[in-house]
Design a protein around this nucleic acid. Structure first.
Lengths: 127, 127
DNA sequence: CTCGTAGTTTGACATTCACCGTACTACGAT
DNA sequence: ATCGTAGTACGGTGAATGTCAAACTACGAG
């Protein structure tokens, strides 16, 4: 039986266990989508503390866990830090193009938001 | 005040109001994903009653509303029926390729599920 | 050994969600 | 006018979600 040898081992779903619904759900939160975008941009594993998020540490932990359990990211301990990396290969194999398309969509939406900072619901100067 | 003039008008978000997060959330439910897949396959508007779903009428109404409010489908009354159609143009304009990619991913996952009906978690004969 | 940093866990809380049953409204046919 | 069919609205319930604060665990440095 596995002794308490490795204290820091995290459970990841196998590739075949990854469900589209879970992945979409994981990506449907603004904070998590942001995390995934940064991870994709970095093209390398990043520690949790690298991210500046508008939530507390515990909430950050929660979001990373949702991403990991959905199979979107892989988390490995590296000493006291935890490295997070996108599971690109697995996702691309299961759902070809999905990740890139969502990433591109997020980019597009971001760009639109910057073009209209006040938003169409806020009076811009016509008040 | 507004008279009971048009009794059957449904609110839809304008194209620019559609949010990626909401779309992903709408698609992250199995029942709704199924609805969207049927709608995409039909390539024409379908009435709610056309769908055979494992939930009651009220829950069906709920799911269609989530899809409509997220901007995924358009609903129009046609007499006593309500026709549901995918907002392909809007979605493709906002998030190019997203809908098709998700649809393809759903197909792929479906196909995998059929290949292994018992699932990798159930002993198939090695017991 | 002690301390600080990184991250987790637990418990709480308000919100949202998926789901149901029942009562209701709109429309078309009789 | 009456009835049946399509779908909505209105509660209500149990589970999940996003959030936080506070206490805790692991690791590296001094």
């Amino acid at each position: 039986m596995t002794p308490p040898a490795s204290p820091r081992l995290l459970e990841h779903p196998a590739r075949e266990e990854i469900l589209l619904e879970s992945v979409l759900h994981a990506l449907s939160d603004a904070v998590r989508l942001r995390i995934v975008r940064e991870l994709a941009a970095a093209e390398t594993a990043l520690s949790c503390s690298h991210f500046v998020l508008p939530v507390t540490k515990s909430t950050t932990t929660h979001h990373f866990r949702v991403l990991r359990e959905a199979g979107v990211i892989r988390q490995d301990y590296q000493g006291t830090a935890k490295l997070n990396g996108l599971r690109r290969e697995d996702l691309d194999a299961l759902f070809p193009g999905l990740l890139d398309t969502v990433l591109a969509a997020a980019e597009a939406q971001s760009a639109r938001a910057e073009d209209a900072p006040a938003g169409p619901l806020t009076a811009t100067a016509s008040d």
